[in-house]
C-alpha cells in the first residue's frame, strides 16, 4: 500500500497522512482549507489507497498455491474460496462470525472466513479443510473424528477440524476444558460436542472415558 506524502500535488493538495495529521491536530488548519478543499482532499487521500468498487485482482495463497481472482473488494474470503476457488469445504452457515462453520487458518490462526475480506487476506498463508489431509491420508484428528463419530450431518465438521487442528499444533495434549474453550466459537446443531471432545482427546493420545453402556432389559426386574 502506497502512502507517500510527496505524491500529493496542487496548491491545496494534502496526502492522506498529512491530511489526517493536520486535521487531527489543528482545527484552524482545517478551517483555512475550506470545506470544499477538505472534501476534495479526503477523496483524493482515500483514492490513493482505495480500490474498487469494481473488480480488482486479488492474489491469495491457499493451501500452498497462489491464485489470482478478479473480484470486488467487498467480497469475503469465504465467498472467494467457495464461489471462485471451488473450495467448498469451508461452509457458510451464518455469514456473520457466529457459528465457525467457515473457519480457515490464516497464518496458522483460526479465522472466520466470512468475516475477513479476501483482499485483506493477501500475503497470508491460508489453509482450508482441503489442505489439512496430506496425500489423501487423514490426520490423527480427522481419523479420530471418524472413529469416534465426532459429527452427524457434518456441516460444522470442517470448521471444527480447522480449529482443533490449530489447537493440537499449539497444545498437543489439551485437557477437555481446553478443547471446550477452543471450539467455543463453533456451533453444532446436531449435538456432537461430547463426541468431538472425545475425538480430540483420542487424537492427542489421551483416553476419553466412554459413556455408552448397552444392557439387556431382561437382566433387571421391576422393583
Amino acid at each position: 500500500m502506497k502512502s507517500n506524502p510527496h505524491d500529493a500535488t496542487g496548491p491545496h493538495a494534502v496526502s492522506r497522512r498529512t491530511f489526517l495529521k493536520t486535521f487531527g491536530t489543528s482545527a484552524v488548519t482545517a478551517a483555512t482549507l475550506g470545506a470544499n478543499n477538505v472534501a476534495r482532499g479526503l477523496a483524493q487521500a482515500n483514492a490513493e489507497r482505495s480500490q474498487g468498487p469494481g473488480a480488482v485482482g486479488v492474489t491469495l495463497r491457499v493451501n500452498g498455491e497462489s491464485r489470482t481472482f478478479s473480484i470486488e473488494p467487498r467480497v469475503t474470503l469465504l465467498e472467494v474460496l467457495r464461489a471462485n476457488a471451488g473450495l467448498t469445504g469451508a461452509k457458510e452457515a451464518c455469514d456473520r462470525g457466529t457459528c465457525g462453520a467457515c473457519t480457515v487458518l490464516v497464518n496458522d490462526t483460526p479465522v472466520y472466513a466470512c468475516s475477513l475480506l479476501a483482499i485483506e487476506a493477501q500475503g497470508a498463508d491460508i489453509t482450508t479443510i482441503e489442505g489439512v489431509a496430506r496425500d489423501g491420508k487423514l490426520t490423527a484428528l480427522q481419523q479420530a473424528m471418524v472413529d469416534r463419530d465426532g459429527l452427524q450431518c457434518g456441516y460444522c465438521s470442517p470448521g471444527m477440524v480447522m480449529v482443533l487442528t490449530a489447537l493440537l499444533r499449539k497444545n498437543p495434549h489439551p485437557s477437555e476444558a481446553q478443547v471446550r474453550r477452543a471450539i467455543a466459537g463453533n456451533l453444532c446443531r446436531c449435538g456432537s460436542y461430547p463426541r468431538i471432545f472425545a475425538a480430540t482427546l483420542a487424537a492427542s493420545g489421551q483416553k476419553p472415558v466412554t459413556k455408552l453402556n448397552v444392557i439387556s432389559l431382561h437382566d433387571h426386574a421391576v422393583a
Binding site: R82, T88, G89, K91, T128, E130, L138, G154
Partner: peptide
C-alpha cells in the same frame, strides 16, 4: 465420515 471431515463431501449448498 472421511468425506465430511476432509471437506470432500458435497452438500447441497456446495
Amino acid at each position: 465420515g472421511p468425506a465430511k471431515v476432509t471437506g470432500r463431501a458435497k452438500f447441497t449448498s456446495d
